[in-house]
């Protein structure tokens, strides 16, 4: 089973518990099936993906979510499929992305999961 990490930049990553609800142009796909399908396309593949955090959390992630939650400051988001330290691990780039919703078990600002919306998705390796 492929594990996924969120790339926080500067060599920092956070392991994700699950990457689900990948929706591309209103079609729901399994992330692993998407990776195996040689997905790079000549047209933008816009959509959403839901990232659920694991029990080991990086303190920078909450600040990171707050940053990408702002729809006026879209940025690229990178997911790493497999071991982030391994050079052959594939990187999934979500272009022009932002966190469009977040999920919490209480009212604190540390999200347990968040929905990332993007204007294109590409696999770099």
């Amino acid at each position: 089973m492929t594990t996924y990490h969120l790339d926080l930049g500067d060599g920092r990553t956070e392991a994700l518990d699950a990457v689900t609800k990948l929706t591309i142009i209103n079609n729901e796909l399994d992330i692993n099936a998407f990776l195996d399908s040689k997905p790079n396309a000549p047209v933008p593949l816009w959509g959403n993906v839901l990232l659920t955090r694991g029990s080991s959390r990086h303190e920078a992630t909450t600040a990171w979510v707050d940053e990408v939650e702002n729809t006026d400051t879209h940025q690229d988001v990178v997911l790493i499929a497999g071991d982030p330290a391994h050079p052959t691990s594939r990187r999934i780039r979500l272009t022009d992305a932002w966190a469009s919703a977040s999920y919490h078990l209480d009212e604190d600002d540390d999200p347990d999961a968040f929905l990332i919306s993007f204007t294109d998705i590409t696999v770099e390796k």
Binding site: K21, L50, S100, A101, L105, D112, A113, L115
Partner: peptide, 16 residues
């Protein structure tokens, strides 16, 4: 520990 989070609800694209 925290309970598993429910992520059953999502906003429809560009509905917000």
């Amino acid at each position: 520990g925290k309970l598993p989070v429910s992520t059953d609800i999502t906003p429809a694209e560009k509905s917000v």
